[in-house]
Every structure is written in structure tokens, then in C-alpha cells.
Design a protein around this nucleic acid. Structure first.
Lengths: 280, 280
DNA sequence: GTTCGCATTTTCATTGGGTGGAACACTAGT
DNA sequence: ACTAGTGTTCCACCCAATGAAAATGCGAAC
């Protein structure tokens, strides 16, 4: 969680006496930190919970929250707890990299999903992580690790690898220098192998990852390009290990990704190998 | 657009001279009004555009926007324009009435969509309007009036009627007293007929609306209940007029809505008429 | 190359909105 | 009754927010 860089991680053991703990922080930052207290596990919070997690006195939190509620960024439940409001969701739906790509990609994801009946994922990169934009799942599909709106590591997921391979070199370097992900169910790659993998992903336009937790699955991902040829998103399919050979899935995933790219204005050259040559 | 209730609707013809135009407004409100300048048609804006639409001087807007960008609520494009950021979308995805119901309903919407191949809509009520939470559409489906994240009137759409019929009495009264919607392609209902319609919707659990614009369609909607039996969302299917008789669609829509309701913890009684009796 | 026009950014003296401790109301648990 | 927790109102202090002005950046027109 990127939200823990606030002040009061816990309960601020020694509250610094009667002195000002974090007085002077811009109001907006405080308001935003009140939004950031919500997580997947905590979708409805009381005033005092919010104040505690955001690291500010209750009266201050109350005042700010009141404004957020008045605007619709938060809503108050009957029991007095607060939740993220529809108005905020409404504005957020205008996010080009959020609902934007989703809106364009959804019909194609539908097709892929309908044919395969397996999880279909769409993700974009934000900071050092992948953010899951969409996930189509049949009710009886295998257990899946990530939810829509959640974040996933770049180096140990198929979509992550695609997004990482599509990023600029210095960003890649920075990520590569970080200590390896400790992702349950995925064997962490040593740096050398990771570099080779990224190179392969860049060349072939396909990334694969095998997981052992939460269930045995294979993910196959492909990049989505915008009109400028930049990788703006990644699409993947997640199937139970052994159900379908990955080399059978790859063409379908690739074709779907290309269809979405074309709809985003990407001029798909002739065949894939042509683009490959122009890049190598 | 609900965003026009801000100060500078246009360009503020007479800027009130050198006096303070709206000095003294809380900072949060200003920040939020900067988020509210984004609409379906304007998803990427320059600094001066944002300042103008939010009704504040450029330096002030810049300062606030800088904070919003730092947090991730906004993102800056290469050309200097601002768009709604993924971080905001991420938090908004925790909205129970936004992505919450969507997440639960999606698999069932999928099924309905797959069988019918027509638009499937999911909406909730916010203030005096319906907000479209999800829309599944095949690529070759008919033109639709609303997009995900957009708003629709309560009295002239099928989902709107369902949500209105499910609201408490005094809210219904307030809406009924308002002047009728002027919705293109939908004949506005006189108050008497509307009351009768709402009563029917409440009794039968089905609402229908026929549109002539943007295309000739029939919408059939049904309510989704939460564990407490309150109408929290509405589900509808939109088909070309004449393609499928509404009375054929109704059972499918109803069954899907019930399936979602059950998943939300709603105890579906025995048959529908049992619940009807307990309510009348 | 120079000039104009406009958007963006920095600076800075002024001040009013923001602040949070204290006190109060209320509920629930002991 | 007492304690412990939450939610709310109040208010005197004061620092963050403000926006005019000026500087800077950026193109396009000349």
C-alpha cells in the first residue's frame, strides 16, 4: 500500500505531548489522505478510524469529511460509517487510462472471454506497479489473485512483464535494481534471467508466467499499443495449468490485443515480424 | 452535466472588476471543483481551461492541481494537459455502490448478454439521477444513449423508473413535483400516468420504456435488492424495437436481477407474489 | 530574426480559512 | 454509577492559502 507513508502508522506511541504532530500539511493532501485510507479490506470506515489512519485529530477529519460528503466523494451509511461515493467514481470513470482503455477494449475482451471461458485481464502501469483495469471471469473459473482496481507487481505477473518490457529503458533499469518481488506462488527471477525475459517479451510480444498460488495457473499476456506505438496497457488470459497449452493461447491473446491496439489508432504494420525488424 | 453549478459557467462576461470573485471558498471545494471540470466531452484540459471552468485564477488552480497531480488524482500528459489519474480511479473502484455492485453483478450480466447479444445495463441512483455503472455491448449492437459513468434521468428511462419506484415515498413525491424531463426520443409522461406506472413497476418488478432516439429501442428493467430488501440498483436490457417481444425479455431480466439480489444477501422469498403481498 | 500574444510559472505581502484542544453529548460495556 | 469509546460543537490563535504582478516560456505571425 502506498498509503502508509503518512504520519500515524500506528497510534503514534508517544504523541509528542501537546505539541503539533503534523500541523502545516496542505489541506488538499489531508483530504486526499482521507480518501486513501480506504482499501480492498476496509471499504466502510467510521470517523475515528479514518482520522486514525489518516493521522489527524477527529475534529479536523470531521470537517474535511463533511466537505467530501457534501460533494459526493464520500457517502455516509445509515450506521454512520463512510464509504467512497458514486460521484467520485463518476469522475474517475473519465480517467483515460482507467475506464478509457477499458471502454475500448471491453468488447474484444468479451469475445476472448466468451471463446475461452477463462479469466481475461486488462492492466495499465502506474508508478512501479500494474493496476488491474478489468477482469472478466465466469462464475466457475479458478481462483484468481487480483481484483479490479487492485495492484500487481511488475516482475512477477504476465501483464506486469509486458508493461515493464514496454516501458522506457531507464525506468526498466530502476525496477531491475530493486530487490526481487516476494510474490506467493511465483518463483522470483534472478536479474540476468529477467533481462533475457524482458528482451524476449519485447521481441515476441508475449509474456508467460506460471503460478502455484492461489492456484496452479498459467498466464499469457500481450501488449496494447496506442497511436504513438507506446505500450499503454496489457491484456492477459489466465488458465488452469495444463488445461490449454500456452502456445495455443498466445495467438488468441495476441490477436485480441492487436484488435484493441488498432482501435486505439495504432497502425498495425503488415505482419508482426516486419515490426520486429524495424525495432531490432 | 451536473458540473455546471460552479461559478464560471462560461467565461464570466463581466469579471466583477478587480474585486474578489469567490474568495473564501474552502480549499477542498476548490480542489473538488477542479476535478468536476472534466466531462465526457472534455477529458483532457489545459491549466487555463481548468482554471476558467472552475472559476479561479490560474496561479491558484496551478497550485491545487500540482497537489492533485502529486497524489495521482490527476495526471499530466506530454502536451501539458491534465487528465483524471489512475490513482483516483483506483480509490473510486472501492465505491460500494459503484464497482461494488458491479463486481457482484458482472458475471450474471455476462450470462444475460451472452444469451441475448443486446445491451445490458446496470445503474444506481445518485441524487436525482441514475448513474450508469456498467454496460455490456456487442460491437454491432444498436446505438445507445448512455455511457458508463454517465447520468440518465429517473423518469424517462427503464432503469430510472425502477430506481424511482424503489425509492422512499417522500423522495418520489419530490421528483414527481419537478417539471417533466425533456428527454429526446421519449414521450414525457403526465403525472397521473407516471404515478400509475411507478405503482405497476413496484408491483410487477418490471419497467419498460420505448425510445425513438437515438434509435428505436425498447428497454426492460428490473430492480436489484440488497440484504435489507432495499432497491440498490437496476438492471436493464435494451433491444431494437420489434426484435424481441418485451414479455419474452422480462423473465430473463427478472431472473438475472434476482440472481444478483440473492448474491447480495437478499432472501428471495418463495414466489414473487408472496413478496408482493407482504409489501401491499 | 524579431515581435507580439498567450499560457504557464514564480514571487511575495496580506489575511481569512484552517486548526485542534477542550468541553459536551451519547452509547455501550463493566 | 463508572469507564471508555465515538461523534459533535465551539472558538481563539496563526500559518497556509491567496491572487495580483511580474517573469518566463512557447509559438505563430510578420
Amino acid at each position: 500500500m502506498a498509503t502508509t507513508d503518512n504520519t500515524a502508522d500506528a497510534v503514534t506511541p508517544a504523541p509528542a505531548r501537546g505539541k503539533r504532530p503534523k500541523q502545516g500539511e496542505p489541506v488538499i493532501d489531508r483530504a486526499l489522505s482521507l480518501l486513501a485510507v480506504f482499501t480492498d479490506r476496509r471499504r466502510a470506515l467510521t470517523l475515528s478510524e479514518m482520522a486514525r489512519h489518516a493521522g489527524m485529530p477527529a475534529p479536523t477529519a470531521l470537517r474535511l469529511i463533511a466537505r467530501l460528503v457534501a460533494w459526493g466523494a464520500l457517502e455516509r451509511l445509515d450506521d454512520g460509517r463512510y464509504v467512497v461515493g458514486v460521484r467520485l467514481w463518476e469522475v474517475a470513470s473519465l480517467s483515460p487510462r482507467g475506464h478509457g482503455v477499458r471502454e475500448i477494449a471491453l468488447p474484444y475482451l468479451e469475445d476472448l472471454f466468451e471463446v475461452t471461458r477463462h479469466h481475461v485481464l486488462l492492466a495499465v502501469r502506474d508508478k512501479d506497479q500494474a493496476v488491474l483495469i478489468e477482469r472478466l471471469s465466469s462464475k466457475q473459473a479458478t481462483e484468481v489473485a487480483y481484483r479490479v482496481g487492485g495492484r500487481a507487481p511488475l516482475r512477477s505477473t504476465a501483464v506486469g512483464l509486458v508493461l515493464l518490457a514496454g516501458a522506457d529503458a531507464d525506468f526498466q533499469e530502476r525496477i531491475l535494481r530493486q530487490p526481487p518481488d516476494i510474490e506467493p506462488g511465483v518463483a522470483p527471477m534472478p536479474e540476468g534471467q529477467l533481462r533475457r525475459t524482458l528482451s524476449d517479451v519485447h521481441r515476441t510480444g508475449i509474456a508467460m508466467i506460471r503460478r502455484t498460488a492461489p492456484s496452479l495457473t498459467v498466464s499469457v499476456a500481450a501488449p496494447i499499443f496506442d497511436a504513438q506505438g507506446a505500450v499503454v496497457a496489457a491484456l492477459s488470459i489466465v488458465v488452469p495449468d495444463g488445461s490449454t497449452p500456452p502456445n495455443v493461447l498466445a495467438p488468441a491473446v495476441r490477436a485480441t490485443a492487436r484488435a484493441v491496439s488498432r482501435n486505439l489508432g495504432f497502425k498495425t504494420g503488415l505482419a508482426d515480424d516486419v515490426r520486429t525488424h524495424s525495432q531490432g
